Simulated scan of single mutants.
Amino acid sequence: MQMLLGGADNGSNIVPRIERLDGGYILYDSSLLAKPFSGLFNAATLAERALLMEPTVGRGGGYFLRFGSQEWVWRHYRRGGVMARVFEDEFAGWRLEHTRSWKEWRLLADLYGRSFPVPRPVAAFVSRKFGYYRCDLITQRIAPAQNLSALLEKSPLSTEVWAAIGACVRRFHDAGIYHADLNANNVLLDDEMRVYLIDFDRSGPRRGGIWQRKNIDRFQRSLRKIAKFTPSFYFDDDAFHYFLAGYGADF
């Protein structure tokens, strides 16, 4: 099972740096991005410079970027639910370290540095005005990889892969890392069926309690919901049994 667990190849360390950019602030890994340029978080500018690839798939939306030999994922933070009708992409706050993109970048940098199976953070951007801020995040693309939902629409997964997904989630839980949106779209598997977790917005360290069980229940609900509305979706309770076996569930 260990061979199916993803992890960072830390040949080079993350070197964080903060600069002013386009009226805001950027926190970036200077070992990947030597010099941020104006328009880095603007779709029109990226398209003009032929850096913009296809849109990403998912509720939040975003784009794949090609930067030299690297491929990145750019996501602009948006609200969900009722508040999105009024404040689509604005969040209250002034302190950079408390913004959503800054916190996710810092969390990913920490996890990646500890060889957890997460995307490497590239850059976080925050622009502030009148007590509100907008923000963005760029991470390295895990490629070639597909999310769990897309894979299950094509064919069933082996019991070994389901167990590896469970073991991956357990690794985060044992480290006290809560994933706020653990669902079938935020679990990636590469072409060797190695497992990664993505999208750590509003996630982070938590102390012991019942949150681990609630995390797993949320994951199961997401799979059942997709199965309910997708004609061909290879998921059932037997598959989840092997997930729990890999997790080592004791509840």
Rank of each mutant, 00 (worst) to 15 (best):
T230P: 11
G246A: 04
H76N: 10
G58N: 03
A245Y: 04
P205A: 13
G6T: 08
L96P: 08
G166F: 00
D199R: 01
F243D: 04
E88V: 10
R171M: 11
R206D: 05
V126F: 03
G39I: 12
G166Y: 00
I226M: 12
G23E: 09
W102R: 01
W102L: 06
A163S: 11
Y77D: 07
A34F: 12
A143L: 13
T45L: 09
N42V: 11
D110W: 08
G176K: 02
C168F: 01
G166L: 03
N185T: 14
L148V: 04
W162Q: 00
S222T: 12
R213F: 10
Y132D: 04
G58T: 05
G248A: 07
I18W: 01
H76Y: 06
N185Q: 14
F172W: 04
A150E: 13
D201H: 05
P121L: 04
M193C: 14
Y196V: 11
A109R: 02
I142G: 01
L46C: 13
G80P: 08
N147H: 13
S232Y: 12
Q146I: 12
F64R: 15
T139Q: 10
L152W: 02
W102Y: 11
L148S: 00
T99V: 05
D238N: 11
L182C: 06
P16M: 05
W162I: 01
V169F: 00
G204I: 06
A123Y: 02
E54P: 10
L96Y: 03
N185H: 14
Q140E: 15
G208D: 12
N147F: 11
I165T: 02
S203E: 00
K225P: 13
P144S: 09
Y63G: 03
R59N: 13
A124H: 02
L188V: 10
L108R: 00
F41G: 00
H98R: 14
G248S: 06
S69K: 15
P119R: 02
E88W: 06
T45H: 09
N10A: 07
